[in-house]
Nucleic acid binder design. Structure first.
Lengths: 325, 325
DNA sequence: CTGTTAGCGCATTCAT
DNA sequence: ATGAATGCGCTAACAG
């Protein structure tokens, strides 16, 4: 900036003013801008941030697995909102390791991000308490905060699972199995609860032997489905707790040439072109990101007295789509 | 830091040293760390960056569409390498708008990122020339730089397309259509070139009427495929320039109940469970991100005299996989 | 081993 | 309308 000032024959202060669009005489402004151009000068945002004592104009996004389309769409949604406000997104991938999450958040705070959106990796997150964060607002996405007060954007896991299961039951199926993640995760537990509730509402009780709560990816789901569908007393339909599981289940159905109906959380491409009827719980992953970003921006604008309104929670709706014969 | 120093009864300098793990007497260190803990103090990385005169320890990643799994995987790969080096990733989505790309890069430079990885949105990018970037290294991913010298990580678009097409031809198909993006993009042009080369090497020439270079998403590809496959003289196979196109083509095949063989760039889930033989060009999108990050880190470590070695270019290999009957 | 001085690049405040 | 002094939080360089 000194160089620019020297070249334009003014003080650094004037350059600063020009760059901030403050009142400066037209001729001076021209000279300064010319010097800026000639020198290829760009204001140092780091110094500016320090001087202004403001946060850095970046928001942190910490997810468990960017490779999962759900989270990359969430990121896209958050980015689009951040972009509207001229904020940059700093990305962190935890690979579901709480330790990584702790370090990442720590680092983001040190970098003075304006706020953080987190898809928590574990059930406990003392490192995300307002105290530890020292005033930096945080919004939870997908999984709710436990033991601490913070805003959150969730998906209607329970309602979606219940509705999809009810749909399958309404088509006459009386033996609907469950394939899904271990219940440690909030979403997994909620989806199982929805599956169960739909049964209860229909006056039924799922058979425990049709429930598999171990699978967590395509291949383990496929194996579990093979086991479930191979026996004598196989269920005629399966509810799957997410799209990885549904895909695994379909692999088994396909290999066995079975006609098992499938229902599952998360929509996926080609769901309408399979050999068996498929019912999916669809929702807008980008919307989760957008809402999280909006909640966060709202807190940011409230300023340091952010604890003003107590924790808000919003639930992104789901819709059930029935594909196939 | 002053507060911590006061509380520990030392100078700020000593606190700084403790936090940097420099030689400090054990007892003093303990007192300082205690004060840090009690006050919940965290070093201000913004001030630190400014003082050290170093870049910010962040690398920028600018992509055209984060919603596309290819780019989110690329991001994941880049993040994993950055993470090893303790660098953060700042994300920008251009939605393929050159204007956005320009602004984003500008902003990232102002924030003093260590370097930038860009998937360019357009054919021209004067805003990415070393001059404009003022010493910040840049690496191109997916599309090569035009008119400027810079490192790049590409995919073997030509080779993959040629090999997949050759595979289809070797199975006896003599009328292989082409469905794909407009040739404005480097990748699209290269893939078409591969399709063409495979024909030439087999002593054949593709019929122009079987070539559709307009489609750019699933539905336009589906429409084009419907048109192509509906006529009398329909091709018996189609080469599709990416997975969106392949999916659209399969939709048409499925609706028509046709038995057209498909080949396409990009692997996709369920490709092995379709009703027609499918040949895909598979490659590791994460690897593109990893290599881009490594090239970038290499330049960063070289320091300001980064123009030392001239532009390097690396090509991620592809492999052809044949699914189905 | 620890403290003092000075300055990274910028903008607020007060002068002119 | 412009400039000079001052300090944001931190650390290199130099004392002691």
């Amino acid at each position: 900036m000194r160089d620019v000032a020297a070249r334009a024959g003014v003080s650094a202060m004037t350059v600063s003013r020009v760059l901030k669009d403050e009142r400066v005489s037209a001729t001076t402004r021209e000279r300064v801008l010319a010097a800026v151009r000639e020198l290829g000068y760009r204001r140092n945002e780091v110094a500016r941030t320090l001087r202004l004592g403001r946060p850095s104009g970046m928001i942190g996004l910490v997810v468990t697995n960017l490779g999962n389309p759900f989270y990359s769409r969430l990121a896209l949604g958050a980015e689009s909102v951040a972009e509207e406000y001229g904020l940059r997104l700093v990305l962190g991938n935890t690979a579901s390791q709480v330790q990584r999450e702790r370090e990442l958040v720590e680092d983001l705070i040190s970098r003075r991000v304006d706020g953080v959106i987190v898809v928590p990796a574990g059930a406990a997150h003392p490192h995300l308490s307002p105290a530890t964060l020292g005033g930096t607002p945080v919004v939870f996405a997908s999984q709710p905060p436990s033991e601490i007060e913070a805003d959150a954007v969730l998906v209607d896991d329970f309602g979606g699972a219940r509705e999809a299961t009810a749909q399958v039951l309404s088509e006459g199926h009386r033996s609907v199995g469950f394939l899904g993640n271990p219940p440690g995760l909030f979403t997994a537990a909620e989806r199982f609860r929805g599956y169960w509730a739909a049964h209860e509402e229909a006056g039924l009780t799922p058979h425990e032997e049709w429930v598999r709560r171990g699978p967590h990816d395509i291949s383990t789901a496929e194996a579990a489905a093979m086991e479930l569908l191979d026996g004598e007393d196989a269920p005629t339909a399966l509810f799957c707790s997410n799209n990885r599981i549904t895909l695994g289940a379909y692999r088994a159905v396909w290999r066995l040439g079975a006609s098992t109906a499938l229902a599952g959380f998360d929509d996926f491409e080609m769901a309408d072109m399979l050999q068996v009827p498929v019912t999916v719980v669809s929702y807008d992953a980008e919307e989760v990101g957008r809402r999280a970003a909006r909640l966060l921006l709202d807190r940011i604008e409230q300023g340091p007295d952010a604890s003003a309104g107590s924790a808000r929670r919003t639930v992104v709706p789901t819709s059930v789509v029935r594909y196939g014969a």
